[in-house]
Amino acid sequence: MSICERCGATFHCAMADPGPDGQADPTPCWCTQLPPTVPVPDGDGAVGCWCPACLKAHIAAQVLKRP
């Protein structure tokens, strides 16, 4: 399991965590289904993977900021 760098929640990241058999997870990560939002801000020290809730909130905030 991965730990969200923003809130500390645990979540599964298919790019970083092994699959159920202990081998590399062959499925695409859940985050690939979301719109890209790069770079992840590092002002609060959060520079790694974020859980689904934090990443979705970040994307929503970016959409609101667009002119």
Rank of each mutant, 00 (worst) to 15 (best):
M1G: 02
M1V: 01
S2R: 06
S2L: 05
E5G: 13
R6C: 12
C7S: 11
C7I: 05
C7V: 07
G8Y: 10
G8A: 08
G8C: 09
G8Q: 07
A9P: 02
A9G: 01
A9S: 13
A9T: 03
F11H: 05
H12L: 09
C13G: 05
C13K: 03
M15L: 14
M15F: 08
D17E: 11
P18Q: 07
P18M: 04
G19W: 09
P20Q: 11
D21W: 06
D21P: 04
G22D: 05
P26H: 12
P28A: 15
P28C: 09
P28V: 13
P28E: 15
P28S: 14
C29G: 07
C29I: 08
C29L: 06
C29M: 04
W30S: 02
T32H: 14
Q33D: 15
T37E: 13
V38Q: 09
P39L: 02
V40T: 10
V40I: 15
D42M: 04
D42A: 04
G43I: 06
G45C: 07
A46C: 10
A46S: 15
V47T: 10
G48N: 06
C49F: 01
C51E: 03
C51L: 05
C51F: 05
A53Q: 11
C54D: 14
L55N: 07
L55R: 14
L55M: 14
K56Q: 15
A57T: 13
A57H: 06
A57I: 05
H58V: 04
I59P: 12
I59R: 06
I59L: 12
A60L: 11
A61Q: 15
A61G: 08
Q62V: 10
L64A: 14
L64K: 11
R66G: 05
P67Y: 04
P67L: 14
